[in-house]
């Protein structure tokens, strides 16, 4: 890879630069409580909530930074923030 003067780069390069390692707490679904309202998908600032074939959602831990907005906004408390452990 060569850098271009001025830090010019094509769009979409953040896919290569995985930022999930910044996380302290990770969100975990309780699918028993989830009503598929999509609020978590809508509000995620990092597009790290992806739909699954069955209508539920899953987190993309490569990019989720653990901000907790999804857990805070979930109307059914179906998302828990769990401390990351090594």
């Amino acid at each position: 890879m060569k850098i271009l003067p001025g830090g010019v780069c094509k769009a979409g390069t953040t896919r290569v630069n995985k930022t999930g390692g910044w996380r302290t707490f990770k969100p975990v679904y309780d699918y028993e409580k989830c009503i598929k309202c999509k609020l978590c998908e809508l509000l995620c600032p990092d597009s790290s909530v992806n739909p699954k074939d069955d209508g539920f959602f899953e987190f993309d831990y490569d990019f989720c930074k653990g901000c907790g907005i999804c857990a805070n906004e979930c109307p059914k408390d179906a998302i828990t923030m769990v401390l990351e452990e090594k």
Partner: peptide, 21 residues
Amino acid sequence: NPMSFGAFADPNYYTEFRYLQ
């Protein structure tokens, strides 16, 4: 033809941008 200008450069890349300047 979307491009980013002045994109983020972590310590692996920043030095080279200064060198080019």
